[in-house]
Nucleic acid binder design. Structure first.
Lengths: 137, 137
DNA sequence: TAAATATATGAGCATTTGTTCATATATTTA
DNA sequence: TAAATATATGAACAAATGCTCATATATTTA
């Protein structure tokens, strides 16, 4: 359990500077004002959830390669599998994740299914990510 | 196993349009040219790894909250734990992850340890993430 | 120096994740 | 219609993840 619930702070049950929660041996909130300030500007929970899901999509090597590829070319599953050197099945599973995240869309053409980006932000996210890694090392 | 290794394509072992890998029942590469083109512009593997690690840091709710908080305020562990309503231990563990990703830095002050951002890109990544979720829904 | 406090960390554990394997579905082609 | 092909998907499983609990470390304070 956390040292002190935010609700306690907001409701005033937490005293400024030294607020103790029960007899737990956990730490006390030192800067209630700072916590309150941050909390005031924190995006709502659904937005945070959506953001976490978005970044999670970029947080796996296979998906990252797929997303990058689709910033350059519309590709069928088969092409993608060859590109990332991974089984068709693995790629299909990951494409499902990306579809779920609304990052890619697809069009059937004969036996093939062509995937492309469904989100303008993907390219921009890549740019920043690249700038980051180039800057960092 | 993948349908066709990229090396096979690059080396010319893969024929344009209909290249079969052994007698596997996996799909064939349809667009060798597209695969080659994408591959040519794909960031090097270390960069991709670093990017995946970067985005992974943003891909968890607790860490996302922590990172956002630190874009607004320098905070001690105790403050953060109260803010995200999570145990001091859980927060400490996640801070270690963020330290490992070089996203945060810390300064000891007495018994407390104050964390702050160690990366200029964090704010920008947040902005894009927010723009994304606002646009998407 | 002893007690209190803030933070860090290892072990354990349940959950999630990413892959493979087998197989289903859909479409084209013979 | 039957065979071939492209993709999708469920089950199984190993690895990674995120938390809790107990405890260690470091610092301050009594």
């Amino acid at each position: 359990m956390a040292g002190l619930k935010i609700e306690d702070i907001e409701s005033g049950r937490a005293l400024p500077e030294r607020s103790v929660e029960g007899d737990s041996c956990e730490c006390r909130v030192v800067h209630v004002d700072a916590v309150r300030k941050v909390r005031a500007s924190m995006p709502a929970e659904p937005a945070m959830d959506a953001m976490a899901e978005l970044f999670k999509s970029f947080g796996d090597g296979t998906r990252l390669h797929i997303l990058y590829a689709l910033t350059k070319e519309r590709m069928c599953v088969c092409d993608i599998a060859a590109l990332v050197n991974m089984s068709q099945s693995a790629v299909s599973h990951q494409l499902r994740v990306l579809r779920g995240a609304r990052l890619v869309k697809y069009e059937k053409e004969g036996k093939s299914v062509y995937y492309s980006l469904d989100d303008d932000h993907v390219k921009k996210i890549f740019e920043i990510g690249l700038a980051h890694v180039k800057h960092t090392r």
